[in-house]
């Protein structure tokens, strides 16, 4: 009698069970690998923007203006043309053709005299984080039916929210971001006195942090609605460090529109002044103190200035807070 040379049923089942388990282990790993690849692509985009801002700085001796304000003042007078820092960087990321087609004597969304309004709907992969679920274009809040290309990246305009129209030159300490509005400040590397490797200049944003889907970032420029300052031009191009990354409150406050965030789990990526890109955890040391406690010498608050509560996150956002930064990643 010859010995059977096949497998028993139990042996077969065990083999199938092991294979099933290995596949079960592998599938989530594949998903994680895809997200890792998307994050890497995003990090590469940011690195290019870091290099582009350095090249811009080499050519102009200053970083670009964060946003040329375009808004409706009380008297109905519009000023500025709305172009932002990412528009200024176009010639430095091999997009000179697009840059030159804009007629920058007119606002970036102007459609009747120039082609600006059509060009402004051109999406650019260099400003798109593959993890971000933002739409390709959205209508400008101020100009209905004017689709404008979206971006995943915003410039940094301060440790705390400083978009207030009531601020004056006396409040210059509040304008401590690398990319400010044109009426506020223009900074060069010499202003980054904390050291370029301790200052964030560009940050990631995330679509939908605000339930009304106003967490939008415009690629070429941003403008205010004609009736109110509330959904401001500044926050269409710039953000600050007042509110924690990936903010949890989705109601309509200025916080979510002006806050860094990403769909990469647990934090977001940031470009520093030296051109390097870092992933920072959303659990980074944070002061989150409101504006008034951060700038106590303002608004009639006479508490001594050295009580400025800057957390590590805020110190990284400010260009010259003069406070040492703890190790952050």
């Amino acid at each position: 009698m010859s010995k059977s040379r096949g497998f028993t049923l139990v042996e077969l089942l065990v083999v199938i069970a092991i294979i099933g388990m290995l596949v079960g282990l592998l599938l989530p790993a594949v998903q994680a690998a895809r997200e890792a690849a998307r994050r890497m692509q995003c990090s590469n985009n940011l690195k290019q923007l870091g290099l582009a801002s350095h090249n811009y700085h080499d050519a102009h001796k200053k970083f670009p203006i964060g946003q040329h304000i375009y808004g409706n003042t009380a008297g109905g007078v519009f000023r500025g043309l709305g172009y932002n820092w990412s528009f200024a960087l176009l010639p430095f990321i091999e997009q000179s053709n697009l840059y030159n087609q804009f007629d920058n004597r007119f606002p970036f969304f102007e459609k009747t005299i120039t082609k600006n309004g059509i060009l402004a709907a051109t999406p650019l992969p260099a400003f798109n984080c593959p993890s971000d679920i933002k739409p390709v274009t959205i209508d400008l809040t101020s100009e209905a039916q004017r689709p404008s290309a979206t971006s995943s990246y915003k410039g940094v305009n301060g440790a705390y929210n400083n978009g207030y129209s009531t601020l004056t030159n006396a409040d210059a300490a509040a304008f401590n971001g690398t990319f400010e509005r044109d009426s506020r400040a223009v900074y060069g590397m010499n202003n980054l006195t904390d050291g370029t490797s301790n200052t964030i200049i560009i940050a990631e944003t995330k679509w939908g942090m605000n339930a009304s889907k106003r967490t939008r970032t415009y690629l070429y420029g941003s403008s205010d609605p004609s009736t109110t300052w509330a959904t401001g031009a500044t926050e269409g191009s710039l953000l600050n460090g007042q509110t924690a990354m990936n903010w949890v409150i989705t109601v309509a406050t200025s916080s979510a529109n002006r806050t860094a965030g990403s769909f990469h789990t647990g934090g977001a990526q940031f470009v520093f002044g030296d051109g390097s890109v870092h992933f920072l955890s959303e659990n980074i040391d944070h002061s989150a103190s409101g504006y008034f406690s951060a700038f106590p010498y303002m608004q009639g608050n006479t508490a001594p200035r050295n009580t400025m509560p800057f957390g590590t996150y805020q110190r990284l956002f400010a260009v010259g807070d003069g406070q040492a930064v703890n190790p952050f990643d």
Binding site: M245, V248, I249, V251, T253, E282, N283, D285, H286, S289
Partner: peptide, 18 residues
Amino acid sequence: AGAIVMFVPPGGRPSASE
């Protein structure tokens, strides 16, 4: 109703809710 409550710890990430 509809108030945002924010807790700011001595160091680290703030928490909030509506």
